[in-house]
Each structure stands twice: as structure tokens, then as C-alpha cells.
Design a protein around this nucleic acid. Sequence first.
DNA 1: CCTAGCACTCTATTTTCTCGATTGCTAAAT
DNA 2: ATTTAGCAATCGAGAAAATAGAGTGCTAGG
Lengths: 327, 327
Amino acid sequence: MLTKRQEDILKLIVIEYIKLAKPVGSKLICEELNCSSATVRNEMMLLEEMGLLEKTHTSSGRVPSEKGYRYYVDNLMELKELNGEEVYKLQTVFNNKQLELSDVLNKSLEIISDITSYTSIVLDTKSHDNKLKEISIVPVNSEILVVIIVTDQGIVEHKNMEVKGVSLDEVKKTVKLINDLIVGTPIDEISAKLEFEIKPVIGKYVKQHELLYNAFYDVFTDISSKNVNVVGKNNILKHQEFSNVSKVKDIFSKLDDKSALENIEEKDNNINIYIGHENKMSPDVTVIKTNYKTSRDEGTIAIIGPKRMDYDKVVNLLDYIKKQIEG
Amino acid sequence: MLTKRQEDILKLIVIEYIKLAKPVGSKLICEELNCSSATVRNEMMLLEEMGLLEKTHTSSGRVPSEKGYRYYVDNLMELKELNGEEVYKLQTVFNNKQLELSDVLNKSLEIISDITSYTSIVLDTKSHDNKLKEISIVPVNSEILVVIIVTDQGIVEHKNMEVKGVSLDEVKKTVKLINDLIVGTPIDEISAKLEFEIKPVIGKYVKQHELLYNAFYDVFTDISSKNVNVVGKNNILKHQEFSNVSKVKDIFSKLDDKSALENIEEKDNNINIYIGHENKMSPDVTVIKTNYKTSRDEGTIAIIGPKRMDYDKVVNLLDYIKKQIEG
DNA sequence: CCTAGCACTCTATTTTCTCGATTGCTAAAT
DNA sequence: ATTTAGCAATCGAGAAAATAGAGTGCTAGG
């Protein structure tokens, strides 16, 4: 258990270090508190023994440890209001009705990345609430046609389908069958329904059923897949903990690996903070993330920055966005 | 005019410098040629006077100047065949009929970026050959509906449209009118046709014509816009000319500016090489680019790397891709 | 016209030195 | 019992000096 003074010191060190990225000495702290630098040093020693502070070398000032940051975000952090300009910028995005939800997310996280100089990730999936509304096809040439799928929530997806050697009539028959049988099905149940209900039926009516079934199966599995987008990646370069190119390389290669990035998915509904080793990304960063869910899409939004991160601000911004999109 | 020996020396220096990124000394060259280092030095001096070589400091080896690279690519470069593995990798992409052309381009340039460690850009526009095939709408709720546009070449685009206060009947009437009047119109003529032929007509039949006209106009202009994609951006970090973070920042910010990137468009049908100051991107890089055009899409593909670039390989790869997609 | 030889130049690296910030400890003050 | 003043000790960051090595330009002889 920390004394009030120890908490004050820890808080000041975290805030100061976030601001200036230089180890914080006792002198700076004692100016803020009503005590001498020696007293502060004694307290600092205790805080270090508790594992909340670290030194970069024997005679350096103190730097918060991961445990120190953890204590800070759990007990000391104060959430401030967003300022008017930030809210205004975000509102123009939220009010643009022409944008789809995923665009809204990407654009608002662009703004956040701009404001904060951190990097954002949007992991987006079509919500299970989406029900198939309509399948239509447009032949492009004798080998290829385009399948267009629309859900009741307004999601539109399309994909080329290879149908070499299948007559257009056969295709139309199949589409009619599928439409009749699975319109109204939630998209995550389509694959199963396709296999157990549609496959047997089209087998009876359609000659090239094997080929067509596979083509549609591909189209549907493809369409219900996850989407990952990284925003403001260059902001990584702005932080001094990434002034050496090899660290940049490392983090960039992780931000590029879309399939690994899917692991960032957050199940929890709160805004969660993963400091350093608490996240799988890199021990050098903090990841702050939350869930979102609307009737149309669901997924995770995450902000990534150095551990020396403006925690209050990021939490606030994520909270604001989550509330806005979930309406 | 260069002598044969001078050309040999220049060529060796370019090749060696591309390989090792270190200024090339006379000793290395004279081992390849049948002459002494002093002779090579004399020739090097002449080549430097001609502006083809440079020194990094008084007693350093030589580095090709931009003019030197230019001479190399114009006169000395030999094109080699692609190796089997590379061709194989690319073919799996070209043979995947499910992919749209823009996906094929992006994926094949991903492969090229992998092979070469350079960065690629795809600038993609719908080809003028695309004719409007069909417009359809799907209402999502009372305020918003989705407009889906399909061209005869199989391009599908969709966009949310705000229609607050307009009855669904009015909208359907408008869509029918537009469909009747402009199906078959090349996409780049749609805006004009919309203004001069459609606008007057819907004015007669539809109450909220102003609002609907504007919404459709937005949708169409939006849809015929250009698309820029940057592939393999991280490869920038692999080259020692970008070992300092500020140069990385500079080039990254340029690669992020999608609208500025549209200027990369190449009108010429050949594979063109822009070395250093010859391109607008950055004096530190070379841009190699070419045009492509199919009935579906058209645009530019470009490879960006340090001036110390494997010119032969990149030219070959671009040539191969261009032929494949236009084939 | 070519080449061997050599003094010279400049970089890159290592070493040494100095300055200043900050610490931990001790002993005195509160 | 807690706080503080004082002080030697530690270490990093940066400047200055020393060294080694690669490569050049020039000269003179082949």
C-alpha cells in the first residue's frame, strides 16, 4: 500500500516522463511537493524497491516501470474532457451519412491518430445481425460472373466467380434456389445452411451443381471474413523510443501482418489497457483497445503507442468513439 | 563519347555499388579488368569530369552520379530472364479467376515487392470502356439507402445515399428513369449526361428531384475516382540510404499522401525510369513505372527504390506484369 | 599510354577527458 | 521518528585527441 506522498511522487514522475521522455530526478519533484529532494529520494528508493520505478543507470533519475504505469492507470489517472476542436472534427465524420460504418471508424481513427500521434487499428467484421437480403449475379463474360450479396443492414459485397462451362441458365436457376432458401439467414449461418440445405437441393435441379456449389461456398466464406486496417502507422516514427530503425522495422512488420493482427480482437466491452509485456504486440508499446458492436458491424478498435503514452487522452477518445458509433 | 574501357569501368562501378552500397575503389575494378589501379584511377578521373561519377569525399572511392546511372540504364544495362520461381509465384496470381484486376495487380506487386525489396504503387482507374450496366438500390432504413452500380466489365461499386424525407416511391421512380436513360453510357460520360439529360427529366416526374439529383451526382463522381495503393512500404527500411529516421519520415509521408500520389500517373506506354531528380517523389529514389490498360481498368504501376536499384530486374518484372495483364 | 611508388587526405573508430546531473549515505535538525 | 543538508561517488553524454586504413592524385620511369 502506498502513502499519499508516494502516490503523488509516482504520479508526478509518470506525468513528467510521459511529457519529456527523460528520467525524472528528485529535484524536479521536490519543487512540486513541499519537501526536500532528499526526502523525495528516500521515497523514490522505496518505490523502486516495490518495483514501481526504475533507473536507467546508477545515477540517473527514475523512470516508471510497467508496474508503475499499471499502478498509475489503475489508481492515479484522471480523465479529462475532450476539447471542443477534437469533438468537432470527429462529429463531421459521424454526421456524414454517406459513409459506411467501417469508413466512419477508419476516418475517426485517422483523426485520433493525428491528434495523439499514435497508431490505430480497426478490426471489423460484419455483425451477426446481418441477414442475407439478396443475391444477384452479373455475367461479365462466358467464364466469369460477378456475384453481389446484400444484407439487410446495407452491407454490399461482391466477388468474381469462375463458371467456365456452366450455362447461364444453370447459374440463374441456382441463384434462384439460393435466394428462395436462404434469404433472411444470418450471414454466419450461411455456410452451414449452404452445405446442409442447399447442396442436396441444387443437386437435383442443376447439372453442374458441384462446381457451382463450390463457387458459392468460396464466395460466402470469403465475404464473412475479417477486415483489418492500420491507421497512422507513420506516427510510430515520431516517438523517440523508435528512433532506431531496427525497432521500427520490428513493429512495422507486426503492423503489416494482417492475419496476426486479428489476434488483437478484444472480447471485453470495457476500454482495456495492455502495457508492455501485457500485450502480444511488442514489449515497447502499450495497446489500448475496446470492443464495438452495431447491428451492421462489430469488432475492435485499438490505439498503439509507446508505453510512455498519454493514457488519459486515449482512453477518453476511445470511449467517445465507442459511444458515438454504438449510439 | 566513352571508350569501351570507360564504359566497362562505369558499368562495373554501378553494378558493384548497387550490390554493396559502398564507394568503389580503383583496386576492385582493376582486378576485373586487365590493367593497373593507376590506369583505372585515371579513367575514373575522366569519368568524374564528365559528371558520371562522384566522390563522397576527397579520398573516397567512386559512386555513380545520377548522370552515371542514366548512362548505365540507357547504354549498358543488360536485361536478364526472370527466374522460374518468380514466374511461378506470379502465375498463381494471374490464374486466379476469382480476383478482380485491381486485386491481381496489388497481389502481383506484393510479390514483386517481396522479391526485390522495393516499394510499389498501383494507380487504378476504371477504364473508359466500362459502360453502365445497371443501377440498383437497397433501402437500409428510412434515411439511408445503398446504391449499387455495375458496369458491363464487371466492376461493382456501392455507396450509401442519404434520402431523408424522400419517399421510397420517388427514389424508385428516379432509379428507373436513370436506368432507362443512361444504361450503356461509358462511365466517364455519366456525370455530363446526368446533368444535361437526366436532370431536366426527373424534374418533371419527381418531387424531391433536387435532393435526389445531388445524391446521385455525388455517388457517380465518387465512383469514377482514382484509386491508389502502396505496397511493401516497409521495404524502404531495408535500404541503407534510409537508415536515418528523418529520411524515412519524408518518404513515408509522401507515400501516404494519396492525392499527391496520383501525380505518379504515367501516360507513356513504355517502361520508364526516373532517377533521383528526374522524379518528383524524392531525389533519393528512383521510380520505374509504366502504363497499363485493359477493358476493365487502366492506370499506372510503379516501383520505387533507392537510386542504387536493381534496374534490370525491376524493368523485367514490370514488363512481365504489363504483358500478362494486357495479354 | 600504362604503371609502380609515395605522400597526402579524409573517414571511421577507439580512447581519453571533462562536465554536469543525480544518486545514496551520513549526520544533524526538526 | 521523520526530514533535511551536505557531500563523495557514479555514470552518461559529448568534446577532443589519437590511430589505423582505404583510397586518391601526382610524378617519374617503363
